[in-house]
């Protein structure tokens, strides 16, 4: 029996699909309306958040329901740096992410005392503590939040069109960058470790993978990149409040929905999930509570068919893998 997989020769098709999508998205400021562009920005930011949560939960099994801690911290640090440090906005954004990464070390050390469901609840509690702390800073508007001053906003670009353009390309970089970075990571030796940990922790330990160390590293890295996306999200919104910044609904529940329904533990899953989520939202957002009920019902429905989400359903029907990570043995 030979075992050469059929999908091996289809690489060009998937590469072309990826390339076309990137060009299409890169050209968006030239074909999309302002409304569409805003929606794409939001979708790309959600894609970045979803890829990071997927890396954390789907690969290393760290089920965090507290990623809003990093979205909010990134947003607040970015606002603080933009308003008080005098750093250019495009520098303040990565600096806010780096600072968040530093803060993730002690926070992670605390969260890692807990395991499984306790870890999940712990991360949520930490995010709530962050929210309460954020509300204490009167320079940042306290509990009612603050808007980015107009002169600070104008430092990005003077015309609204140019600002939209700059912001769109940040979102583009975040969304596409998150996919590319996760892909490259999964193709490196760390990808083997992540997948091994996902599939069996005892076996991973037994072959020399220091899983706690790997998990901690992933926790800190995803915290920093989630904060980077958080900074951007509030740059786009131009206003931040503790409730919006540390919203468990927006930055954890929706992200978990996207990843779980799209396909946890794969690169394609979060992409599918984001497309589905924004398609649904575009025509169902004004249904009020029914919209959320529909989301929930849909998630349950997909789980009943395949717990690995829509990507797994598609894959079993012969859809070729887009992002190849397999290392083939060459006889």
């Amino acid at each position: 029996m030979t075992t050469a997989p059929l999908t091996r020769r289809k690489a060009p098709v998937s590469l072309i699909a990826i390339f076309v999508t990137i060009v299409f998205l890169a050209a968006a400021p030239f074909w999309a309306s302002r409304g569409t562009l805003n929606m794409l920005m939001e979708a790309l930011a959600f894609l970045a958040l979803a890829q990071m949560w997927n890396l954390l939960a789907g690969y290393t099994g760290l089920i965090s329901v507290g990623q809003q801690a990093w979205v909010g911290l990134g947003g607040y640090l970015f606002f603080a740096l933009a308003m008080f440090s005098g750093l250019p906005l495009l520098i303040a954004l990565p600096v806010a992410a780096l600072l968040s990464g530093l803060i993730a070390f002690p926070i992670g050390w605390i969260a890692f005392r807990l395991q499984g469901a306790y870890f999940a609840i712990g991360t949520w509690v930490i995010a709530e503590v962050f929210r309460l702390i954020a509300a204490q800073f009167s320079a940042l508007g306290g509990g009612s939040g603050i808007s980015l001053p107009i002169d600070v906003v104008k430092s990005l670009a003077t015309s609204r069109g140019a600002r939209d353009m700059v912001m769109y390309y940040i979102a583009f970089g975040l969304g596409i960058g998150s996919v590319v970075i996760v892909w490259l990571m999964l193709r490196s030796k760390w990808g083997l470790a992540f997948t091994a940990i996902r599939d069996s922790e005892p076996a991973s330990e037994s072959i020399g993978i220091r899983i706690r160390r790997v998990k901690f590293m992933v926790y800190v890295a995803t915290a920093a990149s989630t904060a980077l996306t958080g900074g951007f999200i509030f740059l786009q919104k131009l206003r931040i409040t503790p409730d919006a910044a540390f919203s468990v609904n927006e930055w954890s529940a929706f992200i978990i929905f996207i990843v779980v329904i799209g396909g946890i533990g794969s690169i394609e899953g979060p992409i599918l999930g984001v497309i589905l989520f924004f398609t649904l939202r575009s025509f169902a957002a004004d249904w009020g509570s029914w919209y959320l009920i529909t989301l929930g019902a849909l998630a349950i429905g997909v789980m009943l068919v395949d717990r690995q989400g829509m990507w797994s359903i598609l894959k079993s029907r012969g859809v070729p893998v887009l992002f190849k990570t397999t290392r083939w043995f060459e006889p």
Partner: peptide
């Protein structure tokens, strides 16, 4: 406890690398 999402070769590769 196989790493079910990898090929047989990748299972060994992971063990050999780490």
């Amino acid at each position: 406890h196989p790493f079910v999402g990898m090929t047989v070769y990748e299972n060994l590769l992971t063990a050999a690398i780490f």
